[in-house]
Computed example of a mutant assay.
Amino acid sequence: MRPHYLPREFTHVIVIAAYIPPSANAEEACNVISSTVSRLQTQHPNALLLISGDFNHASLSKTLPTFKQYVICTTRDNKTLDLLYANTKNAYSSSPLPPLGRSDHNLVHLQPVYQPLVYRQPVPTRTMKRWSEESEEAQKDCLDTTAWDVFTDSHGEDINSLTDCITDYINFCEEHVVPTRTVRCFPNNKPWITPDIKALLKDKKRSIRSGNREELKIVQRELRFLVVKE
């Protein structure tokens, strides 16, 4: 599932619908679900994975200990048979609703309470060099006009001292000719997030708010192409 809005730390959503009959072997059923979940997590390590359904007498607490179960209200009489597991913490709060039609199971209202990663962690900053053709030419000119004999004459045969001195000098030239900028590194950004992808994400949000489905399709297509390319 790829909803219009999803916290950036999740690539997409995978939902598993499960039904374990009362006569089924609970351990065997849980092992089948566990193996399926393991395969999906290997294929999609950054996806939000949800497991929902009627589990009757079965529980995934032993086979999938890293998953959180969110249904805490009773769903049939005084029993909790319908469960929802997720591979992230603090995702939902549950409350009971009346049964649908003549069903003997209550509905469950799951209210999202998940706080995106970008709001839970501070945003660090780091300094980056902005290399360009002009800065490269300036660096070349700086090195071409350097009297390298001064370094070799002052350090003689001490190769380690000479290497350190020349390295410091090159870094000194770089600091003066290459401009720097300070950027914020958001914790929910993947390493492949680029300014072009960020611009398309903003276009996607704008097209969703305006309800322009044709524009949304075009932006989605461009976004998928850039993500695969990166």
Rank of each mutant, 00 (worst) to 15 (best):
Pro3Asp: 11
His4Thr: 08
Tyr5Gln: 11
Tyr5Met: 12
Ile16Lys: 05
Ile20Phe: 09
Asn25Tyr: 02
Ala26Asp: 09
Glu27Pro: 07
Glu27Cys: 04
Glu28Lys: 14
Ala29Asn: 07
Ala29Lys: 07
Asn31Pro: 01
Ile33Gln: 09
Ser38Phe: 00
Arg39Val: 08
Arg39Gly: 04
Thr42Asp: 13
Thr42Ile: 05
Pro45Thr: 06
Pro45Ala: 09
Asn46Phe: 14
Ala47Pro: 01
Leu48Tyr: 03
Ile51His: 02
Asn56Ala: 06
His57Tyr: 12
Ser61Thr: 13
Phe67Ala: 05
Lys68Gln: 15
Lys68Thr: 15
Lys68Gly: 00
Thr74Cys: 13
Thr75Tyr: 05
Arg76Cys: 06
Asn78Leu: 12
Lys79Ile: 02
Lys79Asp: 13
Asp82Gln: 08
Tyr85Ser: 03
Ala86Ile: 01
Ala86Asn: 01
Asn90Cys: 04
Ser95Cys: 08
Pro96Asn: 11
Pro96Trp: 02
Pro98Asp: 10
Pro98Asn: 06
His105Ile: 06
His109Asp: 11
Gln115Leu: 15
Gln115Ser: 15
Gln115Ala: 15
Val118Asn: 08
Gln121Arg: 15
Thr125Lys: 14
Met128His: 05
Glu133Asn: 13
Ala138Thr: 00
Thr146Leu: 12
Thr152Pro: 00
Gly156Tyr: 12
Glu157Arg: 14
Glu157Phe: 10
Ile159Tyr: 05
Ile159Asn: 07
Thr163Ile: 09
Ile166Arg: 02
Asn171Asp: 11
Glu174Asp: 04
Val177Met: 07
Val177His: 07
Val178Glu: 04
Thr180Asn: 10
Thr180Lys: 15
Thr182Ala: 09
Phe186Gly: 00
Asn188Ile: 00
Ile193Asn: 05
Thr194Trp: 02
Pro195Asp: 08
Leu201Asn: 04
Leu201Tyr: 03
Lys202Cys: 07
Arg206Asn: 10
Glu214Arg: 14
Glu214Met: 11
Leu216Val: 00
Lys217Glu: 14
Arg224Glu: 13
Phe225Trp: 05
Phe225Arg: 14
Glu230Tyr: 00
